[in-house]
Design a binder for these strands. Structure first.
Lengths: 181, 181
DNA sequence: TCGATCGTCACGGATTCCGCAGTTCTGGGG
DNA sequence: CCCCAGAACTGCGGAATCCGTGACGATCGA
């Protein structure tokens, strides 16, 4: 139904453009060269400040025409590189219990991650290095619901060795401006 | 500079409106009654699916006029209940190292949380119950930068007893549709 | 009951969005 | 070296949207 996630990773190797302004720091030596150049990055920064900023204003800020900005934004959206959405603090909005759950997996992590990601209560799933293999942010109606998700559904998944829960008490900061500083 | 965070918690006790559709479940017995009613919730859901959806379309979906939707959205934005932004997977976008850091605090947690939240590298700060008092999502340029933030800046804060790090390997899911199911 | 405040509706002008060519630039093959 | 194919950018015109303004009705407090 909905557009789905970000983690699709494009899979479009026929786009070795890069060059132009050259990515700063050159940190992309590892594997996937950033599929977005500096201009698209600037556009993303604009939209991180205000997701509804008009294309013309963005174009003026990054030195592009309005149509070009529109096309780039559309492509970034289609590729799943970014999404323009309203974000809220569920605790502020009301009735909802949140928790971060660390999961330890026996064997391959991927299938467990996919299974957890398929749960509607999982808002955020990330594979990590450290004392947990998986970190999952869970959003629930109430404590009973949360207990059910953690102790029944997650722990029942094959490959799950153990879990550790961190129930949210208060959200202190939530930003999406990593580029702006 | 920017509008800042969500966690401002309104602090406007002179607004005991509520009523109207009556919040489901009646969970608002504790403290702050949800400052948003069912209609605003429906608007938020619309914008969670597409942050650029026109006001008229939203109004048609929730049964309101275009101007009414516009004013409600503006208020929700001003109150900090929600923000409309572009969200990305930094790992996909390129050059950036992410990690979740669990922090254990000696004494009052709040000042530590505020100090961490003041760091530009901290994208997400939440107080939790469990084996960590604080969970912080850190976004860095590279490993050196990450190491510096964790081992120098965070550990140097007064009251920090210990930290535990989970370096991000791969983001599997990232949704903001908690209301839609 | 009266006054005040808030939410909603209605409307008009400025702005923005969107599709559609036309042009330029890059890269590959003959 | 030339030509072609593809992608990206620009400019333009019509339709839709955004935004300010004013007025009406309801609710709450005095």
């Amino acid at each position: 139904m909905h557009s789905e996630v970000v983690a699709s990773r494009s899979a479009d190797p026929s786009n070795p453009r890069s060059s132009r302004t050259g990515n700063p720091g050159g940190s992309g030596s590892g594997n996937g060269t950033p599929p977005v150049d500096a201009v698209s990055l600037a556009i993303i920064e604009q939209l991180q400040e205000d997701g509804r900023r008009p294309y013309a204003a963005i174009g003026k800020a990054v030195g592009l025409s309005e149509a070009a900005v529109r096309q780039r934004v559309q492509k970034l959206l289609d590729q799943g590189v970014m999404q323009i959405v309203a974000v809220t603090d569920p605790l502020t909005v009301g009735f909802r219990r949140q928790a971060m759950v660390g999961i330890n997996v026996e064997g391959d992590v991927d299938p467990v991650a996919d299974a957890v990601a398929a749960m509607p209560e999982a808002e955020y799933v990330v594979m990590t290095a450290g004392s947990h293999d998986l970190l999952v942010e869970i959003v629930c109606e109430d404590d009973d619901h949360l207990l059910d998700v953690i102790n029944k559904r997650i722990r029942a998944l094959p490959g799950v060795r153990s879990t550790e829960s961190f129930v949210y008490l208060k959200l202190k900061k939530q930003t999406y401006m990593w580029g702006t500083r």
